[in-house]
């Protein structure tokens, strides 16, 4: 029996905004019946303000697929298209108080339906390269296709790198043999294609997994020590953050020059980096434009399921440091 939250049950048993929206001027259809889920999202968008005035859905799928679809409509009604497009699948899952890792794809389907509906409204083509593989890491909900893609695009050749880049295997580790198998197989194919040298390719069983586990534990302890040594107490570990918290009221906003603002942002980001590095990730400031702070996440943050938490955490930290309602925009 799946461990669904009360919110998921509530949105499944009494879904809000279910049915056909006759006046819809944007429709997004995604899913695959072979996988047992499909979603038709219908939006009514005010052309003047580009605000979503109504949203309805029809879903073929399990309880959490229906709940995710309903949650999505609740989240986006009243938002402008630009605001709505910033919503991630993690936001949908968070709205529902979390989803079992095997069911995270339900929230992804919601995210994709929204992207498709907006593309339809704007007359754009929306093609997704979405390809779902077998779920490998149950702690972080990472599937085989994603792991293989990441191995290829980053030319990964060690188990440690795979965990750092995808987060897979970073939890209970019961999947590490599967990770080894995927890594060895993908590396072997990459050797055949001339992408990496034979001696670089990973061979299964060559990692001392116990040592790896010990090392990751030690890294975490060191990071914690560094954290307590740092002057300002920072809470950046994803789980402690509340990504949906509204911006603090801009009551006493100091008047600042752009240079001052950039310097403050820079300093705040420098303070955050050690904590991201401790988890195998990193973050660098790319640009500041108005209230938008563009950052580039790298290392383990790339493709990490918790990345949106991290972004929210970074934003919270920047807002605290500058006293300004900044937005953090990840760029690649």
């Amino acid at each position: 029996m799946w461990d669904y939250t009360d919110k998921v049950k509530e949105y499944f048993f009494d879904p809000k905004n279910a049915g056909v929206l006759e006046e819809a001027n944007a429709v997004g259809e995604v899913g695959a019946i072979a996988c047992g889920d499909a979603l038709k999202l219908m939006l009514s968008i005010d052309p003047e303000t580009e605000t979503i005035t109504a949203a309805k859905f029809q879903t073929f799928g399990c309880g959490s697929a229906i709940a995710s679809s309903s949650a999505l409509t609740e989240i986006i009604i009243g938002k402008t298209l630009d605001e709505a497009l910033k919503i991630t699948n993690q936001d949908i899952a968070d709205f529902l108080g979390g989803l079992p890792p095997e069911k995270m794809h339900c929230s992804v389907m919601g995210y994709e339906a929204l992207q498709a509906a907006v593309a339809h409204y704007r007359g754009e083509e929306w093609a997704d390269d979405h390809e779902e593989g077998a779920l490998v890491c149950k702690c972080f909900g990472i599937d085989a296709a994603m792991i293989e893609r990441t191995i290829r695009s980053n030319e990964l050749t060690t188990l440690e790198q795979v965990t750092n880049y995808t987060k897979a295997g970073g939890g209970c580790m019961t999947c590490f043999e599967t990770l080894e198998e995927i890594l060895a197989k993908t590396n072997a194919a990459m050797v055949d294609e001339g992408l990496i040298a034979v001696k670089e390719a990973y061979s299964s069983g060559s990692t001392d997994v116990l040592a790896l586990k010990k090392k990751s534990r030690e890294d975490k302890i060191r990071a914690r020590e560094r954290a307590s040594a740092a002057s300002a107490p920072i809470q950046i570990s994803g789980l402690q953050l509340k990504p949906d918290e509204p911006d603090p009221a801009p009551a006493k906003r100091p008047v600042m020059t752009t240079l001052q603002k950039v310097k403050l942002v820079e300093k705040a980001i420098e303070n955050i980096r050690p904590f991201l590095k401790a988890d195998g990730g990193d973050c660098e400031l790319v640009d500041v434009d108005g209230d938008a702070v563009y950052v580039k996440l790298s290392g383990a943050c790339v493709g990490c399921q918790m990345a949106s938490h991290t972004i929210s955490g970074v934003r919270q930290k920047l807002v605290d440091a500058t006293g300004m309602p900044l937005r953090v925009v990840p760029v690649s």
């Binding site: 995604v30 499909a38 979603l39 498709a116």
Partner: peptide, 12 residues
């Protein structure tokens, strides 16, 4: 009794 409406999800 009716045939289902045409419904073609993007990556079906």
């Amino acid at each position: 009794g009716e045939a289902p409406k045409t419904f073609n999800p993007v990556y079906a």
